[in-house]
Design a protein around this nucleic acid. Structure first.
Lengths: 144, 144
DNA sequence: GGAGTTAATGTTATAACGTAACATACGTGG
DNA sequence: CCACGTATGTTACGTTATAACATTAACTCC
């Protein structure tokens, strides 16, 4: 959280009140959280923030790498490695709902190689693997 | 299309009228197509099909590998390799809107390796790379 | 072929996710 | 102070997806 402020000031970006509250909300959820859940959290305490405000804050936070979006869940999650620019690859556990960034080096290499073969110039990489995390697969977790 | 029928009869699955029409609609779009666009296409000719019907048909078609869903676009696309069970990886061109299944062998290997290291058991792999395809990157296509 | 069963579709309503467009406030540098 | 760029407020709407329950069609076993 202090990191977030540091990053923003370093870049001359303003971590305003709403943005800070949205970021806090994202971090305080252990699992990926939807925009409207964030909204509900913010409006529980105080007033009436509109969806727009949340989406704008999320856009800002994503631009600065503080938050990632999980396309397959329509949800958002805090990024622990915000100061290094990177494309995130996620492992999403259907049992405990955790979403952890995986070590993507090998995958990124393989993807890059394949793309070159196709002559494709990448801009956004979405890699989201859903399944069971190590902890949950030890438990007795049946298929959906 | 004949392939689709063959697959369904082989599996004892019923390729009903709606399912057939949805599948045709998906195939007749060169780009990934949204559920409501499919719906509009069907309702252009004849009567009033409800969204539910389309989503149900899409679910069926996906179960049988005849169609894939692109999570990052909320859209659907026909699968050319429907009889082999496979996880599809897509290259999505932002210029021409094409979405082609890439050769995923190397990537799949890398993913599998990384997952093993994490002790993660995969069930669904979503890999969607957005960017510029070979053809469009030859043209003068600027960033968004 | 008719009764019982499962699969598929119809119907209605609503949930969940996301954005356009325009007005207003806020801060910073000249 | 005031002009300009950035951020937020506000309203309304567009898009994507599903819940819940009723009805119809197909299949099967005797």
């Amino acid at each position: 959280m202090r990191t977030a402020e540091a990053i923003c000031t370093k870049r001359g970006a303003r971590l305003t009140d709403i943005r800070r509250r949205v970021l806090t909300s994202v971090w305080s959820s252990h699992a990926p959280i939807g925009a409207y859940d964030i909204l509900a959290g913010l409006n529980a305490d105080s007033g009436k923030i509109a969806p727009m405000a949340v989406y704008r804050a999320l856009d800002f936070l994503m631009e600065h790498g503080l938050v990632h979006r999980l396309a397959s869940l329509n949800a958002f999650i805090g990024c622990a490695l915000a100061d290094e620019r990177h494309t995130a690859h996620f492992l999403i556990c259907r049992a405990c709902k955790s979403a952890t960034e995986m070590d993507g080096a090998a995958v990124t290499r393989a993807v890059k190689k394949t793309l070159t073969a196709h002559g494709f110039i990448p801009e956004i990489e979405i890699i989201e693997i859903q399944g069971l995390c190590a902890h949950c697969s030890d438990q007795d977790v049946r298929r959906p």
